[in-house]
Computed example of a mutant assay.
Amino acid sequence: MTSRQRTGSILVTGAGRGIGRAVAERFLGAGWRVGLFDVDAAAVAEVAAGRPNAVHGALDVRDPDRWGSALQRFCPDGALDVLVNNAGVLASGPFAGIDVDTHRRQVEVNVTGVVLGARTGHAYLRRAPRGLLLNLCSASALYGQPTLATYGATKAAVKSLTEALDLEWRGDGLRVRSLVPLFVDTEMVTRDGVGMAPVKALGVRLVPADVAAAAWRVVHERVALPRSPHRTVGRQTRVLAAASSVSPDWLNRLVVGRIGA
């Protein structure tokens, strides 16, 4: 059995639809044991129906007790190969026009939820041969964008957390990675991000299956040389990330300002 044929266990949050569902289905199709968890219990039940390798349940990622229950249920032997912190929410619009509760919800789901997943999942991942924490980041983390201020800030936090934990958890034999897509054709973009200027300027060129394919590659990669823990998804994202890494700050600011106008 080659590394690309091996199977294992993977728990995916926000697995009821969009990227999370696509990731779960990709690994289910390859024979993995998959935990599908979402705040919408009915949605993950639908995805898991008729699939013996699927375990599903309700999970509000903001609740540490629910995290503990989900992991105990899915990992009876105490080990987990991959944890995908995918659950996230987005609200777009002028910063001062978004109500406080909506700002807070983005921070609690997108940041606190990822922190709790990492903290609770650590003990399970370290018991696996090559445990992997995979966080869903976003190209919005590359530079703050108008109308996406809080969302971008939460994804910048995920980016930083990924970098820190990848270094900190090396001694435990763990890998920590992030996926960095631009806009993906999901409800979060087409419904919650409707009218966003960056979407109008750059378009939506990725589908959930593209991100799922990237997740599959990260899980199976063998990287000997030092490399960033972040994996861009899609050519457009790679170009933007490469350009922002070598351009002076004033130029990045000018480009983002025009895209977000």
Rank of each mutant, 00 (worst) to 15 (best):
T2L: 11
T2V: 07
S3L: 15
R4W: 15
Q5T: 12
S9V: 09
V12Y: 06
T13V: 04
A15S: 03
G16H: 02
G18H: 04
I19D: 04
F27E: 02
F27Y: 01
G29Q: 03
V34Q: 01
G35A: 05
L36S: 04
L36M: 03
L36W: 01
L36R: 00
F37Y: 14
V39I: 13
D40V: 08
D40Q: 12
A42C: 05
V44Q: 02
V47Y: 02
R51A: 09
A54V: 07
H56D: 12
A58M: 13
A58V: 13
A58L: 14
D60G: 08
V61N: 03
D65N: 13
R66T: 06
S69F: 09
A70M: 05
A70Q: 05
Q72T: 13
Q72V: 05
F74E: 02
F74K: 03
C75Y: 05
D81C: 09
V82F: 08
N86M: 07
L90A: 13
S92Y: 12
G93N: 08
G93V: 03
P94W: 14
R105Q: 13
E108Y: 02
V109F: 11
N110A: 05
V111G: 03
V111S: 06
V114I: 10
V115W: 12
G117C: 08
A118L: 00
Y124K: 04
R126Q: 12
R127D: 02
R127Y: 04
P129N: 00
L133W: 01
L134I: 07
A139L: 13
A139K: 01
Y143D: 12
A149I: 14
Y151Q: 07
G152F: 03
T154V: 07
A157H: 06
V158H: 02
L161Y: 06
A164Q: 11
D166F: 02
D166R: 02
G171S: 13
D172K: 06
R175I: 00
R175M: 01
R177L: 09
S178A: 12
S178F: 03
S178C: 00
S178Q: 06
V180G: 00
L182F: 11
L182C: 08
F183Q: 09
V184K: 05
D185K: 11
T186Y: 04
V189Q: 01
V189G: 01
V194K: 15
G195F: 03
G195V: 06
M196E: 05
A197H: 09
A201D: 10
L202A: 10
L202Y: 06
L202R: 12
V204T: 08
V204W: 00
V207T: 12
A209G: 07
A212Y: 00
A213F: 06
A213L: 09
A214T: 06
A215Q: 02
A215S: 11
V223Y: 14
P226Q: 10
P226V: 12
S228F: 09
H230C: 09
V233I: 07
G234Q: 06
G234S: 03
G234R: 00
Q236G: 10
T237Q: 11
T237A: 15
V239R: 11
A241G: 05
A242H: 13
A243R: 09
S247Y: 09
S247L: 15
P248H: 09
D249S: 15
D249T: 15
D249V: 15
W250P: 06
W250T: 11
W250I: 14
L254R: 15
V255K: 06
V255E: 06
V256T: 10
R258Y: 14
I259C: 00
A261S: 12
